[in-house]
Structures are given as structure tokens and as C-alpha cells.
């Protein structure tokens, strides 16, 4: 029963939502809307579990003075502050006028979290440079083709490339991007689409149940 009941719920839910795609009737529209609300409710309860897990992990690290415990202190302080700001401080939503106080929660989000996230995203440029350096080493014939293609595409995207090649690089770069590149990408997307459909069918029919634990 511990296995059968979740499988039955999975089948009924998955089948209803799959069929709903083909039925525009209001009854099924309501079913879909209700399922989305349930998803949010389940997600909200799971968030409580997540915060408890986060707190336990970092509290344990801070108490035990484990390596990197200082970061745990920062995490706990920020977590507590944002919860307090969220519940107590005025939080302005929507359009904000010039000079208008947006509340400590939004202020922290806009002036601390967003710049930090942007900084992290900016580091991607360096990661790309170091990965490209390795990927473009001409060790084999295939790697050499990759290197040549990359060089042509890079030169084809900048004005200098067209100047030195009389417009040839941009034409070849466009061909590489829109013919072999798109063909390969579409092949992957078709494969992924079929894989998703097959996986969904397996989950719905209870063939795939590894998400419940065990194989």
C-alpha cells in the first residue's frame, strides 16, 4: 500500500493533466488551476523544511567552529535579517517614485543581493576564457575543426574580420551558425522532446519509480 497509493495518485494526476492539454472545457481548466495552487502550497511547506535544513546546517557549523564557520554566521545573520525585514518593514511593491523609501527588504535585495549576483555572473567571462583555452587546443583532427570554426565565428562577428576577409568571415560564420549548428541543436531538441515524453509516460505508468527511493 505504501507503494501503490503514491503510484495511483501519480497516475491519476499525470493522466488528468496530460488530457487537460486537449480539453479546453472549463472543468479541466479549473482542475489545472487547482493543481497549480496545490503545487504552490506544497512548495510553501517544503520551503519551511528548506529553511530549517539551512539553519540546522549553518548553526551546527558555527557552533562547532568547522572550516568556513564565518560564512555560516554571515548566512544566518542575513537569513534572520531578511525574515525580520520581510515581516516587519514596509515593503513597497510595483513602481517606485524617485526618492521613495522602498523598505529595508527591497533595499537589501536591490543593493546587496542583486549587485552580488551580478558580480558572480560577471565572473562567467573568466570561466569561459579558461574553458575555451582548453577546448580549443588543436590536439586531434576534431579539436582542430572546432578551433577553426570558433576562430571563423569569432572573426565573423566583429568588423575587423570582415575587413581582413572582404566579408567572407561573416558569411562563413553565419553558415556555420545557421546550418550545421542549428541542425545539431534541433537533433538534440527532438531527442530531448522524445526523452521527456517517454520519461513522463514511464512515470505515469509507474514503470519509472526511482524518485520514490530505491530502483
Amino acid at each position: 500500500m505504501r507503494r501503490q497509493l503514491p503510484l495511483a495518485i501519480t497516475f491519476i494526476t499525470a493522466f488528468t493533466l496530460a488530457v487537460q492539454y486537449f480539453i479546453p472545457h472549463r472543468t479541466f481548466e479549473i482542475l489545472y488551476e487547482v493543481s497549480q495552487v496545490w503545487l504552490q502550497i506544497v512548495g510553501a511547506f517544503a520551503m519551511v523544511l528548506g529553511i530549517v535544513s539551512l539553519w540546522q546546517l549553518h548553526w551546527g557549523k558555527a557552533r562547532g567552529r568547522k572550516p568556513g564557520w564565518g560564512y555560516s554566521i554571515v548566512t544566518l545573520v542575513c537569513l534572520t535579517a531578511m525574515i525580520v525585514f520581510g515581516f516587519t518593514g514596509p515593503t513597497k511593491l510595483g513602481e517606485v517614485g524617485p526618492g521613495e523609501w522602498i523598505g529595508p527588504f527591497n533595499w537589501s535585495y536591490d543593493n546587496v543581493l542583486s549587485p552580488l549576483s551580478a558580480t558572480m555572473f560577471a565572473l562567467l567571462a573568466y570561466f569561459i576564457a579558461s574553458a575555451a583555452y582548453r577546448a580549443f587546443r588543436a590536439r586531434t583532427a576534431l579539436a582542430t575543426i572546432l578551433l577553426l570554426s570558433a576562430v571563423i565565428v569569432m572573426l565573423g562577428r566583429v568588423p575587423l574580420g570582415d575587413v581582413i576577409s572582404f566579408g567572407l568571415f561573416s558569411k562563413v560564420a553565419n553558415w556555420l551558425l545557421y546550418v550545421p549548428n542549428v541542425a545539431a541543436k534541433r537533433a538534440i531538441v527532438i531527442g530531448v522532446g522524445l526523452g521527456v515524453a517517454a520519461m513522463s509516460l514511464k512515470v505515469m505508468l509507474g514503470i519509472e519509480r526511482s524518485y520514490m527511493g530505491g530502483e
Binding site: 538534440i188 531538441v189 530531448v192 526523452g195 521527456v196 514511464k202 519509472e208 530502483e215
Partner: peptide, 29 residues
Amino acid sequence: IGEELYAASAYLSRDPVQLGTLKGQDWNK
């Protein structure tokens, strides 16, 4: 790459039903 991620359970279990779905996927392709 792509669909290989979904093929893992069939590949690991070698269960005929799982392998059948994987092969069916190929026939669909």
C-alpha cells in the same frame, strides 16, 4: 547529452520494460 540523461534508468536497471521504452523512443525518432 540531452536524452542520454533520461536513458540512465533503463541503462542501469536493464529491466525489459525500461529497455522497451528506450527502444520505443528510438523507433519514434
